[in-house]
């Protein structure tokens, strides 16, 4: 009764509740989605302005850059849509309201994630899909079943990397009660450096970005799709296998989360 099938069913039950709760604030839904889309549009416009000046960055033209940007944004949206409730996680831990997730017969993480529905991540995802769609027709890639399948795996892999890292960082809060700042910092690093070809940051920069591992989210798979495999100083096969990195990171992160959960201290009242 704690198997995967039950967890999925429990998720649907809880999501049903979250949707019913959310429709009470209908206007908010529309505005947050618009805000999300505007925010990301502005982000891409910035890159556009920069590109327009230089035409080509490290051998990547505007179409290539749009593919990279779109892939990163879609990956970002893909993890944010289900995982946005992590933003409130350390509050739950500090206030002890995480207790309720530990006395119901469903995975605590899943209960946390289905607490409320947030609509701004859908804005991220939609604007990412728009950019990605436009980029796909602009770049010089032969979109067949293989390349599209690779793209899909790469997007999921990227989502798993970002989501996994944020999950592992969140679980620090079980010990320290607060992990918001480190999460925010890492998220901005991904946002700042994930959208550009890693080469422009030099050898040292590439090394750091591989370790963090920002380049695995979109840069490596994008370079594979564009037919100019750039493993940021790593063996080329690493670039090809980059979508798998997400599975590794997410699995390790989930184990860390489970381990850290045992240290949850609740609160005095």
């Amino acid at each position: 009764m704690t198997g995967v099938r039950w967890q999925l069913r429990a998720a649907l039950i809880l999501l049903g509740g979250a949707v019913r709760g959310a429709v009470q604030y209908r206007a908010d839904i529309v505005f947050t989605m618009i805000a999300g889309a505007l925010y990301n549009g502005a982000g891409f416009a910035t890159i556009w302005v920069v590109l327009d000046r230089f035409e080509v960055i490290a051998g990547w033209d505007i179409g290539d850059m749009a593919l990279l940007y779109g892939m990163r944004l879609v990956a970002h949206g893909l993890w944010l849509v289900p995982f946005n409730q992590l933003d409130w996680f350390s509050d739950h831990v500090r206030e002890g309201s995480f207790d309720r997730y530990l006395v119901r017969p469903a995975s605590p993480l899943l209960q946390l994630l289905t607490t409320r529905i947030q609509f701004s991540p859908f804005g991220d995802l939609i604007s990412g899909l728009v950019v990605l769609g436009a980029a796909m027709s602009a770049v010089d890639v032969d979109w067949g079943p293989l390349t599209v399948a690779y793209l899909v795996f790469a997007l999921i892999g990227g989502a798993l990397i970002e989501g996994g890292i944020q999950l592992a960082l969140s679980s620090i809060a079980f010990r320290t009660l607060k992990a918001d700042q480190v999460k925010l910092t890492v998220d901005s690093v991904f946002n700042l450096f994930g959208n550009y070809p890693a080469r422009i940051f030099g050898t040292a920069g590439q090394l750091v970005l591989s370790v963090i591992p920002v380049v695995f989210v979109a840069y490596l798979p994008a370079s594979v799709l564009l037919g100019r495999v750039d493993a940021a100083g790593l063996p080329a096969v690493v670039a090809w296998l980059s979508p798998l990195a997400g599975v590794v990171v997410a699995t390790a992160s989930y184990l860390v989360w489970r381990r850290m959960l045992l240290g949850y201290q609740s609160s005095g009242t």
Binding site: G21, A22, R104, P105
Partner: peptide, 20 residues
């Protein structure tokens, strides 16, 4: 989760109901 099926718990200080 197995334990959760066997027990009910009420904390007077904090509700476990869905707020909205």
């Amino acid at each position: 989760q197995d334990n959760a099926r066997n027990i009910g718990v009420v904390f007077g200080q904090r509700s476990q109901l869905w707020w909205d």
